[in-house]
């Protein structure tokens, strides 16, 4: 996950499937534990899940940039939980999320595996990713709008006569 793989990332061609999976994984990472647990409980024809790695909690050193856009520096760590699972369908799913919620990340890895299966991808997208994404977006919009209400509208006082 250091410099070597960063190069890998930069060299990787932008492909639509990868971009869609990245987006789905980002939404799963920000989902709540109960959203994912409920979705998994209600999932029809659940495949068997075997753990490959984790779920385990560790640290990621978060980097910033000097001045906002300059050279990178390490500014503090964050707890991160990761999991890798294998489904009886043969698909392997990965998940990483901030925090220490192991159940949530295990579920996220299961849904990442289901996303990769053509038979279940659209169900994951429609029943899980889309509604969670909608919730997150509306929360963002609400927060932006609340902040916008505190925007200063300067006006100039005209003093004296022209």
């Amino acid at each position: 996950m250091a410099e070597a793989t960063q190069q890998l990332h930069e060299q990787a061609p932008a492909n639509p499937e990868q971009a869609a999976r990245q987006r789905a994984m980002a939404v799963l990472a920000r989902a709540s534990g109960s959203e994912l647990a409920k979705a998994w409980d209600a999932w029809p024809d659940r495949p068997d899940v075997s753990p490959v790695r984790g779920p385990e909690t560790g640290l990621v050193m978060v980097r910033g940039r000097i001045g906002g856009g300059g050279a990178p520096f390490n500014f503090g760590e964050a707890t991160v939980t990761r999991a890798t699972v294998k489904l009886s369908t043969g698909h392997v799913g990965h998940a990483y999320a901030l925090g220490a919620d192991k159940d949530k990340v295990r579920h996220a890895a299961i849904f990442d595996a289901l996303w990769q299966d053509d038979a279940t991808r659209s169900a994951v997208e429609d029943q899980l990713v889309a509604p969670i994404c909608k919730r997150l977006d509306s929360e963002d919009t609400r927060r932006r709008d609340e902040t916008a209400a505190t925007r200063v509208d300067f006006f100039t006082m005209v003093r004296g006569e022209d």
Binding site: M1, A2, Q6, E56, T57, G58, L59, V60, M61, V62, R63, G64, R65, P72, N74, E77, A78, T79, V80, R82, Y96
Partner: peptide, 10 residues
């Protein structure tokens, strides 16, 4: 806790 790695710069 184990260290998983470094983030990309925010």
């Amino acid at each position: 806790l184990p260290r998983f790695g470094y983030s990309n710069p925010i």
